[in-house]
């Protein structure tokens, strides 16, 4: 139940924080070493394929962060669990940073491969909209005076904006885009070689661990600031 109760979350996070931080450092350094030096070059893209090991995990995590925020908004609004509001305001900047990393690394990858920094196709546009939605959530966090109204309005906005999530996910299947469709999915065998799959998975777990450790710090700070505001 530590995912829904601030008190239990604090106790569990105290145990979990240091191992997760340690794990994230190890995974990240090992993953960077593997993906930048040990993994093979692509036969077509050459060494620029290594951008994938940053681009793809950050894109997955930007979607995953928004999905987590949506779930917590439903929990907070429908089941009256106020911990959801704390999580929403704590992890929105993390998702924004992941989306920014995804956009920047993607345009750095697009310049040598597609010949342009940016195209207005469905996937890129919907990811840019996702980034702006994250920014609006952060601005709303800063600009309301009344805390009760603020957190509920933000939860409603997150639910309305979650329309964008399936559009981002399936935009490569629904429209003809320059961006390639997903190579790795649960239902079918991945069309990627194991020598590239392994560093990708390591980097994904490293990104998840970094995200979780920052999220723990931010959620604890949020809980402390709410306690001090109540007095």
């Amino acid at each position: 139940m530590f995912l829904f109760n601030p008190y239990k979350f604090n106790k569990t996070a105290d145990y979990l924080f240091k191992p997760i931080l340690f794990l994230s450092i190890i995974l990240f350094s090992f993953g960077l070493l593997y993906s930048l030096f040990l993994s093979p070059d692509d036969y077509q893209q050459g060494t620029t394929v290594r951008i994938m090991y940053v681009h793809v995990p950050s894109a997955w995590l930007s979607l995953m962060t928004y999905a987590i925020m949506t779930l917590y908004s439903v929990a907070a609004l429908a089941f009256r669990i106020p911990f959801g509001f704390i999580v929403n305001s704590a992890i929105a900047p993390i998702g924004a940073v992941y989306t920014l990393i995804c956009i920047i690394s993607g345009s750095l990858w697009g310049k040598p491969m597609w010949g342009t920094w940016w195209v207005w196709d469905a996937r890129l546009t919907s990811v840019a909209l996702l980034f702006i939605i994250y920014l609006i959530i952060i601005f709303m966090n800063l600009s309301f005076e009344n805390r009760i109204v603020k957190e509920k309005v933000i939860a409603i906005f997150i639910l309305v904006g979650s329309i964008n999530l399936p559009i981002v996910k399936f935009s490569v299947d629904w429209w003809n885009t320059l961006h390639q469709p997903a190579t790795i999915s649960k239902l079918s065998k991945p069309s990627i070689d194991p020598s590239m799959m392994t560093p990708l998975i390591i980097m994904t777990f490293a990104f998840i661990m970094i995200g979780i450790s920052i999220a723990i710090l931010r959620i604890k700070t949020e809980i402390i600031s709410r306690k001090s505001n109540l007095r």
């Binding site: 601005f139 709303m140 800063l142 600009s143 309301f144 005076e145 309005v153």
Partner: peptide, 12 residues
């Protein structure tokens, strides 16, 4: 309706 109580930043 979201921005009724938002006094600072109406452009949002």
């Amino acid at each position: 309706s979201m921005n009724l109580m938002n006094q600072r930043n109406f452009l949002l």
